[in-house]
Design a protein around this nucleic acid. Structure first.
Lengths: 123, 123
DNA sequence: CCGTATCCCCGCAGATACTG
DNA sequence: CAGTATCTGCGGGGATACGG
């Protein structure tokens, strides 16, 4: 962040919303698995592991609504539904992966701060 | 994101946690207001506006625990407590502001996608 | 195979009242 | 001034069952 300005209050809210939007329990994982290939619903679910059908549906619907994911239905029987990232979805991954890099590089500093804090406050 | 790799499952979780960690209701706003100056509790509260005492305390405690904020108590009467960003806190702002830039630049595309989606599904 | 409907639990967040 | 304690409502997210 530039030293001599800070975000406007309304922009802060927009950023918080985007962070929590993308930071919900499954979105990053779904977007990551769709990052390089188109996947069907059940294949996606199998790869993620541990996600309920309901939450995968919800997560994909929200991503579709925001224009991050495309949903394609093959009207076969039984139906086959596949998902892929849109251009916008790919673009979103860039700033998110920057934050991912930062998190990977600095998680040990956060861990240290936490254990230091906990040591001081627990006794 | 690089084309031929994706984040590991465990890393996805770490990123989701960081996103929701920073994406909670007040963190971005608090960090932003502390971005350029040290502030006392009540001054910070006054500037943010609309935050309860409890939530400001909680948000600051979490930031302190993670090493993003320093808390300094002047043992006067009544007490004076001031907060400032640590080096780690300032560094965190960099990738966050990248995402902020992206959000500002692309929010209209998301809005369009949403209204398009809602138009199709509401009828 | 893909999705929806229901029920339920739990933790975030606000309101309010009270202390050093 | 700067907290803590308590109560409450709301929404995310899981389990389960059912439908096209």
């Amino acid at each position: 962040m530039k030293p001599d300005n800070h975000l406007e209050t309304s922009e802060c809210r927009a950023i918080s919303q985007m962070l929590s939007r993308v930071g919900d329990k499954w979105t990053v994982m779904v977007v990551t698995f769709l990052g390089n290939e188109t996947l069907r619903f059940s294949e996606l679910r199998r790869r993620i592991g541990g996600i309920s059908q309901k939450m995968l549906t919800t997560t994909l619907r929200n991503l579709e609504r925001d224009g991050f994911v495309n949903r394609t239905v093959e009207p076969t029987s039984p139906p086959s539904v596949s998902y892929e990232l849109t251009a916008l979805g790919h673009e979103l991954l860039e700033p998110v992966s920057r934050l991912a890099d930062w998190t990977r590089d600095n998680s040990h500093r956060i861990e240290e701060a936490r254990s230091h804090y906990d040591r001081l406050t627990s006794k």
